[in-house]
Nucleic acid binder design. Structure first.
Length: 142
DNA sequence: GCCAACGTTGGC
DNA sequence: GCCAACGTTGGC
């Protein structure tokens, strides 16, 4: 069977919700996104899509992999009913984190959406970028 | 702590 | 509908 999963990257401040929290919880509702472009990406996520988990503000590195377990639904934290959330589950921590500096220094990642639009909290990752980052992390699964 | 980038708001 | 002011994000 051919895989049709897509790849994404989400940012979270570890002070607020770290990858370790996702590992503890198993699954979590990814809500609170209040940016239209990010919301479009959330709406495009399909069950089974793979997601890089990035720590913003503190750490500044990709630390783990999550997967989409529930496709976009109205964000329960948005009383205006305008934005959506998805549900994510933990997959695995990376053998070693990949820092923002490393990603910036990698020519293969020069066009990554998260590097070009630094404030975007949910962004697409191309298959080649996904493979590159997992290779940089020493993760054989990419 | 500062600043750049970018989105939103509100006066006109 | 324009655009200046303001707020937020996130890297440095």
């Amino acid at each position: 069977m051919t895989s049709t999963a897509s790849f994404w990257l989400v940012k979270s401040e570890p002070n607020t919700y770290a990858f370790a929290d996702l590992q503890r919880d198993g699954r979590t509702v990814w809500d609170g996104v209040r940016n239209n472009v990010a919301a479009l990406h959330l709406k495009a996520m399909k069950r089974g899509d793979q997601v890089l988990f990035y720590h913003s503000q503190i750490g500044l590195e990709v630390v783990g992999i999550a997967a989409v377990t529930r496709e976009a639904f109205l964000d329960p934290s948005d009383t205006a009913g305008r934005f959506v959330a998805v549900e994510l589950e933990t997959v695995r921590a990376l053998p070693r984190p990949v820092s923002l500096a490393e990603m910036k220094a990698a020519p293969a990642l020069a066009e990554m959406a998260m590097l070009r639009l630094s404030r975007l909290s949910v962004s697409p990752v191309r298959p080649a970028e996904w493979s590159k980052i997992l290779a940089m992390a020493g993760d054989a699964g990419g």
